[in-house]
């Protein structure tokens, strides 16, 4: 993974309520009680995140925890009350209207929970909309939009209106629209939450397929922990506007930073987040049934190891770093590890 930071936010606050600005200058580090006393809502409180190029960064939390507000601060749809945001090294908050419009037209895309399609435009016109507002001519923009429509698997529906499509199909249009300008940074605010579970699953697969082709930098929001661990490289857990922990799914499960995170991760099926590398034991002499990579999920290798009579070797970058036994796998599966 390339580790250059594409988007960084430092000490970002978003407080709703009367006189929120002056309140924060008087009280630079307000606690929850201070806010409540002044009838203010701390939608985002001192958020620090760094989004690295090419990663899928998931922001996870219950409804009302401030995820949408945070992501809207990152795209400056919402003006933060305090803090700094840097996009590709440039200060996003000091940009004027024209610069901001330029960045959004070329570098950012966003997908919305309720799809946010324009009802008076067809699928193709919706997908072409970001190009339309840039004044690109009809033929060019519809060609480009058509590619996107095909990419998301809606070929043949391009002349339909949004109301004629199912929820899943509408969100595909939303995805096509957000990708048509070939953005570097892709925001998705609970894109699949409004869909039925089966469709949601299908859309997650579709999303992974797209990401494997496109390699975007992604900020993905969800309230569904299973969705988060399926998709995330790293997860930020939010509660009451505060980021509780930023970590890989596995770290979250193994080393929760707060009780809240621990509570959250308790019922996750651990075999879906824990990798072979985390449960290795020192290499012992004897026979081995085979070799697995240290990054493989226990879930994926469990049946293989359980079925064998001997432990497996665990490799990292071609080097053997330990062994994994049947017992260790079973411990993970039944939640003892």
């Amino acid at each position: 993974m390339n580790t250059t930071t594409i988007l960084e936010c430092r000490d970002v606050w978003k407080i709703y309520g009367a006189k929120a600005d002056s309140f924060l200058t008087h009280t630079p580090d307000p606690q929850k009680g201070d806010l409540r006393k002044h009838n203010l809502i701390g939608a985002v409180r001192r958020a620090n995140v760094q989004i690295r190029k090419g990663e899928i960064f998931v922001i996870m939390g219950l409804s009302g925890s401030g995820k949408s507000t945070l992501v809207r601060c990152l795209s400056r749809l919402v003006e933060p009350t305090a803090g700094e945001i840097f996009f590709e090294g440039k200060n996003l908050l000091s940009m004027n209207e024209a610069e901001l419009i330029h960045i959004r037209r070329t570098k950012m895309g966003m997908v919305f929970q309720q799809f946010a399609l324009l009802p008076h435009l067809t699928v193709l016109e919706n997908a072409a909309f970001p190009l339309d507002v840039q004044g690109i001519d009809k033929v060019t923009r519809e060609d480009r939009a058509m590619e996107m429509v095909e990419l998301v698997g809606l070929k043949g529906r391009e002349n339909n209106y949004p109301r004629e499509l199912s929820g899943g199909q509408q969100q595909r249009v939303g995805i096509a629209r957000s990708l048509v300008v070939e953005p570097d940074l892709w925001f998705l605010d609970e894109p699949f939450s409004a869909l039925d579970p089966l469709i949601r699953r299908e859309m997650q697969d579709e999303f992974m397929r797209l990401q494997n082709m496109l390699h975007k930098t992604i900020v993905f929001i969800t309230h569904d922990f299973d969705e988060a661990i399926r998709l995330a490289d790293r997860i930020a857990v939010m509660k009451d506007g505060e980021i509780q922990q930023v970590a890989t799914p596995e770290e979250l499960v193994l080393n929760p930073a707060t009780d809240y995170v621990a509570e959250f991760t308790r019922y996750v099926s651990r075999s879906k987040v824990i990798t072979a590398g985390s449960v290795i034991q020192p290499l012992q002499d004897g026979t081995f049934a085979g070799t697995v990579d240290h990054k493989q999920l226990i879930d994926d290798i469990a049946s293989q190891i359980e079925g064998a009579n001997a432990p497996y070797r665990v490799e990292k970058d071609g080097e053997v770093i330990g062994q994994i036994t049947r017992q260790a796998v079973i411990d993970v599966l039944v939640g003892r590890a």
Partner: peptide, 28 residues
């Protein structure tokens, strides 16, 4: 809906485009 407005902003609409390409047609 707020989201439709935000979609307009994210597409890089100017103030005028927001009004005439997003708000008025959606409210028709």
């Amino acid at each position: 809906p707020d989201e439709i407005l935000e979609a307009g902003h994210m597409a890089g609409c100017t103030q005028r485009q927001i009004m005439w390409k997003i708000l008025v047609p959606s409210a028709t």
